[in-house]
Design a protein around this nucleic acid. Structure first.
Lengths: 198, 198
DNA sequence: CTTAAATGTCAGTCAGTACTGACGGTCAGT
DNA sequence: ACTGACCGTCAGTACTGACTGACATTTAAG
């Protein structure tokens, strides 16, 4: 299901995973079909027999991952309507999902032009995340647990903050100057809680 | 100084600006020397006479922009040691600088591997921004205007939030669902102020 | 063993692309 | 008119990389 599987993989999967891996680091144009095949332990010919073209390979890799749905579920089931607790869950879930799909996200950041509708399904689908969080904030305000604010902007701020941190970890490699992700999460959630709680 | 100049440009500048423009959208490998020359209204030969190689062109483009210094200045001169006011200034300054250099930033996001030390000078130099903001938070705490927190983590959170928003605007094109940048700034600063002020 | 499906090997095609050399034109300064 | 710096054109080189076809080889199933 994700790139971190360790079970026995068939030929198609090996090629897909190798492609995702290499494209994420070197970009679509930066990697050759030979490299991908070699990394998968297969011949270049086999690659073309399976996918027909390099472009198809990218699209197939892209089709195999979707993380919009699991967010929705993990949300609506586990919230306890206590701000700090819920924000912690949301933040941790977000980073877990993003990290699991980090290579595909890296590809879609670099290769936004190579595919039609590519952008819509990755970068911009934090949109859904924001919508869910917006509804949560609105409901919390209705319950009198939050101050009156623009719920959408707050959701946007919170998600963007986590997105920024996620990208930092992705591009800068290790944690920034020595900041651990978990410390960031607890600290930033605490600040938001103080800033939003009534 | 920046890509937004409108004065008469000499040959070298025309090529550099065309290169920055095209590489930002299509990537280093995605653009040809012919395209760049054509976009600059010059011949391919002239490109090579000026820069010798495509790689040199990228490096020359890279050398022409630096935004680390101006941050330092704009900071230490204008702060009034009142949290909300200062955070507003910092946030607005940040977006102004990042926006002015957005194309080079886009390149360095996509082409992190093509240059040695490329990453260090762009993506990862928000580091300096964070250090400055950390000192500010520390000093504010010493003045009794802030609650006791991990200043570095707070700075990291604040900058990352603005970085995330900046990248959203960059990749998603227009503002997100209809959220204006200025609205985000005032709202997020207000939340952080409430979350951090004593 | 036989067969069929999947894979490998190898040689090769074809288009693109960075980069060069030779030469000719333009134009400002003297 | 002469010169020198700058630019264009054109033809061409050398290499890379996606993609193919023909044929041999492996492997699992009956």
């Amino acid at each position: 299901m994700s790139e971190g599987s360790n079970a026995v993989k068939n030929t198609g999967d090996k090629l897909l995973l190798a492609a995702i891996d290499l494209m994420a680091s070197k970009g679509y144009k930066g990697v050759t079909t030979q490299e991908i095949a070699a990394a998968a332990g297969l011949s270049e010919k086999t690659l073309f027999r399976h996918f027909g073209s390099k472009q198809n390979l990218l699209e197939a890799a892209f089709d195999r991952f979707h993380y919009a749905e699991e967010m929705t579920r993990l949300f609506n089931e586990k919230l306890v309507w206590e701000l700090e607790t819920d924000l912690l869950l949301i933040s941790r879930t977000y980073h877990e999902i993003m990290n699991r799909n980090r290579k595909m996200i890296m590809i879609s950041v670099k290769e936004a032009d190579h595919l039609p509708g590519f952008r819509e399904r990755t970068i911009r689908h934090p949109k859904q995340f924001i919508e869910i969080l917006t509804r949560y904030f609105t409901e919390m305000t209705a319950q009198g647990k939050l101050i009156e604010t623009n719920a959408e902007l707050q959701a946007y701020s919170f998600i963007s903050m986590n997105y920024g941190v996620f990208l930092n970890h992705l591009t800068a490699g290790e944690d920034f100057p020595g900041l651990k992700l978990e410390d960031f999460i607890t600290e930033s959630v605490r600040t938001f809680t103080r800033g939003l709680a009534r």
